[in-house]
Design a protein around this nucleic acid. Sequence first.
DNA 1: AATGAATGAGTATTCATTCAT
DNA 2: TATGAATGAATACTCATTCAT
Lengths: 202, 202, 202, 202
Amino acid sequence: MNKTKRSIMEAAIETIMELGFAQASIGQIAKRAGISKGVITYHFPSKDELIDFIVTELYTDGAEFLSQIMQEQTASGMLRSYIESNLAFIRTNPRHVAAVAEIILNMRTEDGKLRYVGLNDDPILVPLIEIIQWGQREGEFREFTDFGAKVLAMTIRGTIDGTASLMMSDPRFDFDLYTAELITLFERATCKMGEGNHKEDK
Amino acid sequence: MNKTKRSIMEAAIETIMELGFAQASIGQIAKRAGISKGVITYHFPSKDELIDFIVTELYTDGAEFLSQIMQEQTASGMLRSYIESNLAFIRTNPRHVAAVAEIILNMRTEDGKLRYVGLNDDPILVPLIEIIQWGQREGEFREFTDFGAKVLAMTIRGTIDGTASLMMSDPRFDFDLYTAELITLFERATCKMGEGNHKEDK
Amino acid sequence: MNKTKRSIMEAAIETIMELGFAQASIGQIAKRAGISKGVITYHFPSKDELIDFIVTELYTDGAEFLSQIMQEQTASGMLRSYIESNLAFIRTNPRHVAAVAEIILNMRTEDGKLRYVGLNDDPILVPLIEIIQWGQREGEFREFTDFGAKVLAMTIRGTIDGTASLMMSDPRFDFDLYTAELITLFERATCKMGEGNHKEDK
Amino acid sequence: MNKTKRSIMEAAIETIMELGFAQASIGQIAKRAGISKGVITYHFPSKDELIDFIVTELYTDGAEFLSQIMQEQTASGMLRSYIESNLAFIRTNPRHVAAVAEIILNMRTEDGKLRYVGLNDDPILVPLIEIIQWGQREGEFREFTDFGAKVLAMTIRGTIDGTASLMMSDPRFDFDLYTAELITLFERATCKMGEGNHKEDK
DNA sequence: AATGAATGAGTATTCATTCAT
DNA sequence: TATGAATGAATACTCATTCAT
């Protein structure tokens, strides 16, 4: 919508990727946007609000993109869909995703505490844990303790969250292959023994 | 050996944990060490050298600690040993490990490039990849493409690397249970179908 | 043109004169300019660039001022003109000249070497040496070895360069008289014996 | 006499020559002397006293060396002797002389004023002025106003004072030739017309 | 005599923010 | 809307000096 705000956001993402969050000063962002510093503080009363805008924008995009996940009939289908759609979203804008990851890991409040909830915090893991527990109840997945389900969920989430920077650091990164490998990996990690997974990874 | 240097290192680790790498200024570190800023620059000519000291010290400790991994007869034993010993090392000094993770993710050179090789860089993954390929050759593990082995290695490494901050953010963190769960998870992810792993994780 | 840059330059000159180059900190300059330190680094990205600006500005002014020297018909006229115009230029802005002399004598690069070519370096002496050699060829001046011409040139240049600080340390300094005395002195030093210089110095 | 003090002085001179006065910190001096900083402050309660020692030592040496100047019968002989002996002294220890010149030009008191009297101050010029006025009274030299005599004295002194750094910046510097050229130059500048100085400087 | 450790004031520079135009 | 100027706090680092050993 607001063209200037978006272009500032793009420049900020570019700057964060290039210099890291801590070095992404308003001056550097303005330089990359080809505007003066004042323009930024005009559109974003404070730097915090610019950062917030970048994060929120990604979450809004993400929520929309990911709203169609939960239409699978089986838990393993759901897990596959979860991984596929998350990675697909990352693929649409890896720079934005990677920048927000940088922000989340580094942005702090005045008293030094992380400003955004960690990537491994419960609310984020809930959907995954629910998939796992559903699969277990249905007999599709192996046994999991509550803690085991959480550990798996964290592993999956952590792997997904690492994808964007992985993708950007390797120009020949094969996204489809990577997705297939991860799905295989986590299907193996969840399935019951003796009951092979017959799916042909796309 | 050198008491002051170690106490400065401890204070630096504490500061990085509390405020994050970017906010861990010499002033803040000195305050936590209960000394004046000058003492730090006396012992470490530049902040970079202090950071380097913190990183190197951990690597030295780690190299010693991990030197006894490779004594298993089977690939799955080796994988288990790899995970166990890495986590055990993290357990000995999670704050130091977490601080170094912060450093590696954030420390940059003047031109904005990451100063330390990323956690997912090949050299770090090599031992893991070799274990996986060995298990596959021996018929212990399932089939892996080269890329598949690398993806698994990255997943394992990423999960291990996330442990320290996980451990510190949760005071009731059950280390043994977490270790067992991860071993189970990755044994499942590697084993052949139909040939269950019968080991009861300790 | 740029008012603030010029006022910063003026304050810097004043500070260098008052405290010396080494003590002329950005803080002191800002204090004398009645502005905050930030203004200086806003207009001059680094202190070196401020210093460079001060030096270059003087050289630009000087080049313009001195461009009309070389219109005399005789070597002794030229020498007189050289001295007169150099001193006249110093008179226009002795503080600036004296400050730049301080800078040239003291400004060093990181490795400790003088940053600006010395006042006695060849390029600066060339015009003077040419005048002397011309006068000798024409039979106006006495005999000079190459080295003798250079020594004389250094003496003349050194005397001229010392004028600004001389002038400023003595409030009753008589500029015209000083100029006349120097011209007499160096005419005597160059002229052939027995052929008096009959000019009445202005 | 005191070996350590002298070696510290030598190191200080070396440091001042290499880095300039402003950068000649106690640390740098200690490094060049191969001792710890503490040794310096042990022997010299403050840096100022070290500097004073360096200056005083040179003046003591100089006073002794120059005490035999005034034994010439004529003013022009005296002038020649003055120049010769001053240059000869500089030749004995050009580094010390150059370092002290650096000190005199840069050392300041707390309030920013030059600590040592300038090189062009009256007391230093008095002997030279007396020689000139004597030569004029005796009819050996040309007419000089009081101010003219002072200007000449300043020129001579300035030229002599510049010799040390000149000498050190040029490894092929020919001291004897330089001395001869200066003597010729200033004899010409003082002599009456028509009464040539017939000496052929070697 | 000599040393290493420690201190605190001072340095240039970076930067988010404010403001007048 | 947009800009350039200005501010003041914070940063890493330097250094003369003090002190215990």
